[in-house]
Design a protein around this nucleic acid. Structure first.
Length: 581
DNA sequence: CATTACGAATTT
DNA sequence: AAATTCGTAATG
């Protein structure tokens, strides 16, 4: 491996550095960037060679299984070009597989492949990178080449269909563009990179372009992460000492661009604070502001503290940081409270209205619930009464389907033809079979006070879940009771769909196909509605809680410190007025 | 000159 | 058959 590297280096050497601005890497013994011809890669040093420079044609290459350049072969006589056996020449998949099986672990997966047209290049898989394929645009070794997932953030990703894009640009994710071989303009844009880097690596973040934060939340996070000592650092350092002059220029430029971009966003407010703070600090500590770059020591920002700050901190101790923070609160808070009290709080009004609305809805839901409970009991009453009906034996008016066994219908679930006599039963079972493949489990048992027979709630120790089907229609955990021979159907008969006649169906239950399992269905109907009402109630409770927390948090310490309400001149027009609101 | 769009080779 | 991702023409 080591020798590979040096080999490569000597090969590329000076040209490499001179092509800085270009994005075309140089290849082959001729050191030219040309890649629009057949090329072959050395399986040892991974360098690419033009076929014509080393007198290897594409045809010849097809027969080659492992190829090593002259230099590598000179250095290491053990390396020898290996050829495919004649039979495998024509890309027989079977023999390909065989080959892979019998190749030594150090040999690459497969040897040659074409990319982008016959006249272009043949890429050999490098021996040093077992998984990643090398190609004209992929070295197979750099971090981007090894990456397999798209970032979903860059412009190329956003263009992709899978991320909802129009598929117009059709380039692979910027973060997967090869560092060495991809065209430079396709790689990650510098600013984007720094952005991402900051996101991924919050610790180093402040050492780079420390001025921009994506949100207040990020600011806060940083503030906390640094033990609330670095906020002013981050903001008042226009010069970062460790940048070389060139670098610094670059960073500053980036910063300006970003500032313009984000000028109008919401953190304007917080930036103004930062700037205020900055000025304060400047004037307070102006005497040492210059010396800092040289010595690297700062004075602790703690109130009336003259000690040196700890490295990477603005304070000499946590105590000083706390003191300054406390002072800040003392200074800012009373003013904010006053400001707060000066103007009426619209949000509070809204909150109150919302609460009222929620209460009303809760009331309605409760009413509905009692209604449903009533129907629940009513139904149970009907069912009990129905059971007492006597079976009407005489007529065999069991619909006309007695002998018509030729008639076939198809199951709605499995689509098999079935006999009408067993159809209902079959379809029920069949459906249950499919349905049981779906999970209705929840981690928690149901705890609704005063509600009987809602969910099945059978515990499944394997998945550690409780069954959340309606208890009445859970085929998995409850069997339908066996119907006795003398049992009556008992379904309340109706006229015009809804009007009860007061009579009950008196066909033997086993034979009644008209009212198959009617109790179960009616119970399910009621229970489902009850569940819905409970959900509604739950949702309303949640809403209530949210509104209440919002109301209590309003004008809390943190909120007051972070935000402020400005009373504009009452005579100037409120921009939101009239039309909009 | 950079960026965008798109046909098409290649891979999945 | 669809997705990926080249190279390059068109466009700004």
């Amino acid at each position: 491996m080591d020798s590979d590297m040096s080999d490569n280096d000597t090969l590329r050497g000076p040209e490499n550095s001179s092509m800085e601005g270009e994005n075309a890497p140089l290849y082959c013994i001729c050191r030219k960037p040309d890649i629009n011809c057949f090329m072959i890669g050395c399986d040892n040093c991974n360098e690419w060679f033009h076929g014509h420079c080393i007198s290897i044609t594409e045809k010849m290459a097809k027969a080659i299984r492992e190829w090593y350049c002259m230099r590598c072969r000179d250095k290491n006589p053990l390396l020898e070009i290996k050829y495919r056996s004649k039979k495998t020449k024509e890309r027989d998949p079977d023999s390909d597989r065989m080959e892979r099986q019998y190749s030594t672990p150090s040999t690459p997966d497969y040897k040659s492949e074409k990319r982008r047209g016959s006249k272009k290049a043949i890429a050999h898989v490098g021996a040093t990178s077992p998984q990643v394929k090398r190609s004209v645009r992929m070295c197979g070794e750099c971090e981007p080449c090894r990456r397999t997932e798209d970032c979903a953030q860059c412009d190329f990703c956003k263009d992709m269909k899978k991320f909802g894009g129009p598929n117009k640009i059709r380039q692979k994710c910027r973060f997967r563009q090869c560092e060495v071989r991809a065209r430079k303009m396709l790689r990650v844009k510098e600013e984007e990179f720094s952005l991402r880097e900051r996101r991924e690596n919050s610790y180093y973040r402040r050492r780079h372009y420390s001025d921009d934060y994506d949100s207040e939340a990020e600011l806060l996070q940083q503030y906390q992460a640094a033990g609330f000592d670095d906020m002013a650092w981050a903001t008042d350092d226009d010069e970062e000492p460790q940048f070389s002059p060139v670098m610094r220029k670059k960073a500053v430029k980036v910063k300006h661009v970003k500032r313009r971009e984000k000028k109008f966003d919401k953190k304007k407010e917080s930036r103004r604070h930062k700037q205020k703070q900055k000025h304060k600090d400047r004037t307070r500590h102006s005497e040492r502001a210059d010396g800092r770059d040289n010595s690297g020591f700062r004075q602790c920002l703690g109130p009336s503290c003259v000690d040196a700050a700890k490295p990477n901190s603005k304070y000499c101790s946590e105590d000083c940081g706390m003191k300054l923070a406390a002072n800040r609160i003392y200074e800012i808070l009373p003013q904010r409270i006053q400001q707060w009290q000066q103007s009426p709080c619209i949000a509070e009004e809204h909150g109150k209205k919302q609460l009222e609305r929620i209460r009303r809805e809760q009331q309605n839901a409760r009413l509905r619930l009692t209604e449903m409970e009533r129907r629940f009991h009513e139904l149970e009453g009907i069912i009990t009464k129905a059971k007492q009906q006597a079976v009407q034996q005489d007529e065999e008016v069991n619909d006309g389907e007695g002998e018509d066994t030729d008639l076939q219908i198809f199951c709605v679930s499995c689509s098999h033809p079935i006999n009408p006599k067993v159809a209902l039963k079959h379809m029920e079972r069949c459906y249950a079979k499919y349905e049981s493949q779906t999970s209705f489990g929840s981690m928690y048992p149901t705890r609704i006070e005063g509600a009987t027979r809602l969910f099945c709630d059978v515990y499944n120790p394997q998945s550690k879940t409780y069954c959340k089907r309606l208890q009445v229609l859970c085929p998995e955990h409850s069997r339908d009771p066996k119907i006795q021979v003398d049992e009556v159907c008992g379904c309340p008969l109706v006229r015009n769909v809804f009007e009860l006649t007061g009579d009950y169906c008196r066909v033997p239950k086993r034979k009644c196909n008209k009212h198959y399992n009617w109790e179960k269905l009616r119970r399910a109907e009621v229970d489902l509605e009850r569940v819905r009402v409970w959900y509604k109630l739950d949702e309303l409770f949640e809403q209530e809680r949210n509104v209440r927390t919002a109301m209590t948090n309003r004008a809390g310490l943190l909120a007051l410190m972070l935000h402020q309400t400005i009373q504009h001149d009452p005579l100037t027009t409120d921009l939101r007025s009239n039309k909009d609101r």
